[in-house]
Design a protein around this nucleic acid. Structure first.
Lengths: 227, 227
DNA sequence: CGTATGCTTGAATCACGTCAACTGATGTGG
DNA sequence: CCACATCAGTTGACGTGATTCAAGCATACG
């Protein structure tokens, strides 16, 4: 979502980046209830926010973070997180100390408002996830997720040629959509045989974008696209 | 969520309230895509945020606002809303002009952070709704919603005696939980016959709070309760 | 090699939606 | 006052979308 920051804000921000950190896939970055003192900007790979569940059950994914997302900026005003943050793939993260960010906001209130806006777009995406889970059936739900990711990834130029890289397993997709991996598999087959899209070796190929958007009942208004 | 503001912040804020507005039930307050120039603090009644759906289908409720909620504070940094806001019951609203709020934040950056925090708690509630829709089955889902509302309403003293006022129809509950009104009816019967709670004439009576919380798999961490 | 992981498919089961009918409460106009 | 419409709630019968359980395959890896 970096496109939502002005160049000058972006410059001020990047100057206070403390380090670039690399983490492998399937790593827990922040635990539920943990005190957070830094915020992470995702510059490579994918991460997820998860609500833990009773032992034996997999956690429920409630957000998927992609290139350009400020992953746990929510922890800046709150100081504590109510959910887990994990890497899904290998990731590269730009690390910002909360103390530095607060300094920056103090000196440039405009930047503070811009960062607040970023978190409000996150909130809009959360609402969309609630909508998707509640109102859409499996096939529409998955198609809708693919449309959302296409739009968000296009913002940072990560949609190329016939689709985009989506290095998620069918289990990840099931976690993201509140369904079983078996059913994800069947829905993917339907989408493939229906000529909408294919997901092979971590790449989503969009065969018919118009049909995919129509099938997924997708309206990108909630992403507050610039321009 | 007024309990999350300090007394001094609360005092500064209430001084800039422009008016108290009353609206009848089932009124659309803000349309999707509409420019917003004021924010509304709910001081009586209930409202909802809705994602519109194709003609013929009812809109999907994605948030329920109760006494003490700053209903569309999200519109302050963004300027536009991506969803509809409607009253569910008759409501009383304290109205704040965005211009006044921005002034206030300018003079008291701390208050700005406090307001940001309020919206971040909203975001946490959104995540919880996504979790509830995706991970919980009908009975657990409804029980969980009742627990959430109990906790939120208790924050402003609206839980009295054996329960709280919940002036929602079964259709409203269906919209809030992503299920049909018929199924809500059956689940309510199960909860009643199971000795958990009853919903009669707009009042939720909690017969066995412990059982309700256990059945609803409820963990209030996401509400960032004070103290 | 053997083992783990992800993908794929079939058959049985279950949760929930759909359709339909009926009730009781409330309201409205003749 | 009654006839009628409307709306929320209730219940039964039936259909279907999704889960569960199970088995089989392919690929990667130590």
């Amino acid at each position: 979502m970096l496109r939502h920051l002005s160049p000058s804000h972006w410059q001020a921000l990047s100057a206070s980046c403390r380090e670039i950190r690399e983490l492998p896939a399937r790593t827990i970055v922040t635990l539920k209830g943990e005190r957070v003192r830094e915020s992470l900007l995702l510059v490579g790979g994918m991460m997820g926010r998860y609500v833990p569940r009773p032992v034996g059950a997999r956690a429920q994914m409630v957000a998927l973070q992609v290139l350009g997302d400020f992953v746990d900026l929510h922890g800046l005003p709150l100081g504590v997180l109510d959910h887990e943050i994990r890497t899904v793939t290998d990731v590269q993260l730009a690390v910002f100390d909360h103390a530095d960010l607060l300094d920056l906001i103090d000196r440039e209130p405009d930047l503070g408002m811009a960062l607040w806006s970023l978190t409000m777009i996150d909130a809009a995406i959360h609402r969309h996830w609630a909508f998707r889970m509640a109102a859409l059936r499996a096939t529409v739900r998955l198609a809708n997720l693919f449309c959302e990711l296409e739009t968000r990834l296009a913002l940072c130029g990560a949609v190329t040629g016939d689709g985009y890289d989506l290095p998620l397993t069918q289990i990840d997709l099931a976690d993201a959509c509140g369904m079983t991996a078996v059913h994800v598999n069947r829905v993917l087959r339907d989408l493939r045989e229906g000529g909408c899209c294919t997901l092979v070796k971590g790449r989503l190929r969009i065969l018919d974008g118009v049909r995919l958007h129509r099938l997924g009942a997708f309206d990108p208004a909630f992403l507050y696209l610039p321009d």
